[in-house]
Design a protein around this nucleic acid. Sequence first.
RNA 1: GGGGGCAUAGCUCAGUAGGUAGAGCAACUCCCUUUUAAGGAGUGGGUCGCAGGUUCGAGUCCUGCUGCCCUCACCA
Length: 489
Amino acid sequence: MNDVSDNEYRQVRIGKLDRLAEAGIRAYPERFERSHDLAGARELPEGTEGVAVAGRIMTARVMGKLTFMTLQDQSGRMQVSVRQDDVGPEAYKVVKKLIDIGDFLGLRGKVYLTKTGEKTVAASSFELLGKTLRPLPEKWAGVQDQETCYRQRYLDLTMNRQSMDRFLLRSRLIRVMRRFLEENDFVEVETPVLSVKASGAAARPFASHHNALDMEVFLRIAPETYLKRCIVGGFDRVFEFARCFRNEGMDPSHLQDFTMLEYYAAYWNYEDNMDFTERLVQQVLEELFGTLQIEIGGETIDFSGSWPRVSFRELILGDCGIDIDQHPDADSLRAAIRAAGIQLEDVDKLGRGNLIDQLYKKVSRPKLVRPTFLTRHPIDLSPLARRNDDQPEVSDRFQLVIKGWEVVNAYSELVDPLDQRRRLETQASLKAGGDEDAMDMDEDYLLAMEHGMPPISGWGMGIDRFCALITNQANLRDVVLFPLMKPND
RNA sequence: GGGGGCAUAGCUCAGUAGGUAGAGCAACUCCCUUUUAAGGAGUGGGUCGCAGGUUCGAGUCCUGCUGCCCUCACCA
């Protein structure tokens, strides 16, 4: 693939560069003034003159003294034609001999309809806008090889329109979300990617070294504690599209490098936040698809109306008959799980919270297809969430689950600095005991908390996951332009 | 990390039973002024992912390795 020395295509095209230079034609000119993009030009009435279009040549049909080509730009494709009688024999020879499929071409002329009714721009003049040294993949099948699509995404984007459309949709998704948040008085902020402590989630971070300061630094695993510091400082509502990094296993639903949208709203609780989440997601889907009935994996999922809100306890009770409230400790719950004949991995090592989490993942999560708010998580799964006032063993938290995917995680934030200190101490001792995913003590964050916080509800969405979900992709890499790959040579 | 699958020309793919590698597109040389998977005549292009092994002979069988995909486990 990368063999440069004896590639026939490359040698031939480098030869054409020399011949272009001899003819005084630049292979890489600096600009071209377009009058329309290709989709726009296709809408022009027959007979429109002075049209200037540009794009990559995708196909060419050379018929003696008349050549048809299909150009492609971001907007789509359009046919153009060059006639020897119109451009002269010298220029026409350039089209026939020195311009290849894959080259960028700019062309000025007039819109007409061919005999077969195809809207076409007939060139009165044209310019080579960029010479390719490599052939484009096959025009009909395109690039099929998934590895090539990931490693050379530009080929995938060029050849597979559905891929381009998916990435355009991702961009629109982010735009719509940003606008919705701004319209609701949220302020976009930027917080550190590199810091001394990876805080805000239970995950292993990537470590690096800061040379000038000679200290270890970590890539963030979540923006959470910094966004909450913003609230301490007086912002009422903040959000960030935060690239996060977690040094853990990867599979189709986990990337080590992913995008989280997080926002924090002062004076809200998690129930306000569920209402807002419904509005946000419904607005996004309405703008992107014009409907709230979305086809995902062969079934139509209805996003309209209010979504069910069920607690961990209700959900698990309904799905396997175990009432977690009747099992206040891990041993009792473990016995109940065994008695119900449910197989969980490493069942002996897990504490009560993780047992509940595993139980949920096994018996309940796969059944959650319609958008559902899952609420009231065990407190020990939620070290940064607020304790419920009436039921101290659960948190004021929710996750939005769609088709078994956890898309949003949100809660009423823990704003009591002394409770927070105790819970981080618990996490730190778990970590000292060998739980590598447990959180670190974070004195700097506690210092901020001790300066006072209002009630806050925070919210985080895995943008890659949500995007994959609504574009019907099973693998997150299919919504990331350039996923990390091991070198293959 | 366990299990399964894939890797052949620039691209998409064939390759029967182990007998010196094929097609279409693309490229090159020609013909062709309304094609649109344009058409016609001809030509060139391959360390068959890498390294070993079995065999008279390996794209094909065996072992190891690399990369990718799926899956289980782990994991926001």
